[in-house]
Nucleic acid binder design. Sequence first.
DNA 1: TGAAAAGTTTCAATATATGGAAACTATTTT
DNA 2: AAAATAGTTTCCATATATTGAAACTTTTCA
Lengths: 109, 109
Amino acid sequence: METNKKMKMMSLDQLKDKHLGEVGTTERDKYEFDLKIEILGDMIKSVRKERHLTQEQLGELIGVQKSQISKLERNTRNVTIETILKVFKALKANVKFSIEMNEGEFKVA
Amino acid sequence: METNKKMKMMSLDQLKDKHLGEVGTTERDKYEFDLKIEILGDMIKSVRKERHLTQEQLGELIGVQKSQISKLERNTRNVTIETILKVFKALKANVKFSIEMNEGEFKVA
DNA sequence: TGAAAAGTTTCAATATATGGAAACTATTTT
DNA sequence: AAAATAGTTTCCATATATTGAAACTTTTCA
């Protein structure tokens, strides 16, 4: 659907907007997100595109069919950490993880 | 085992060393890690402790038995994103995710 | 030290993530 | 427009993540 496609591109652009790499000095791209299942696929797709790979090529690097890659990028399922690591390792991207918590916030009901 | 226990405590201390919260001003703790399956359990345990919860209490918040929490903290298995989110949501902690990539680095073999 | 609380492990059931193969649709190229 | 390439979907099998219950071990504390 047309609308659907536009929505997705918006979200990819939002990713781009979050580039935090020091301009020129280091050659590092950095994307940071609130971890949501819905956005993980976009991350994979975005990085794959930067690597100029097709789904089939990425699949070969990992050892799976292109259909798997499609499924991952389209968030058709929940995903395990292992799968995430496998994909981004193939893309030579470093995956970080951070936890933020407000110290006082928590109440036991 | 004695050695094992010491190793684990070291790793928790390393977590602590990574506190990045602006001192005093905001009341925010922040832990950042390379995403590794082995360290995720320590993250959960560490945040749970800061919330002064037992495994059983955390389990109640999520709706699972304390044995589940133990398993997650002890990294006995691979984990899905959904589970990670469920746990940290219960702990009122915000989970972020970041990808770093060197632009030039990638070669297609 | 002995009881209570907290955490771990095992066994087992169920749900679901991973994965391939192939047909299909969409996009790109000539 | 036709062919080639890229991406998606469906059907299905297999592996394994999630979970509970209960027994067990470790830690805490009176």
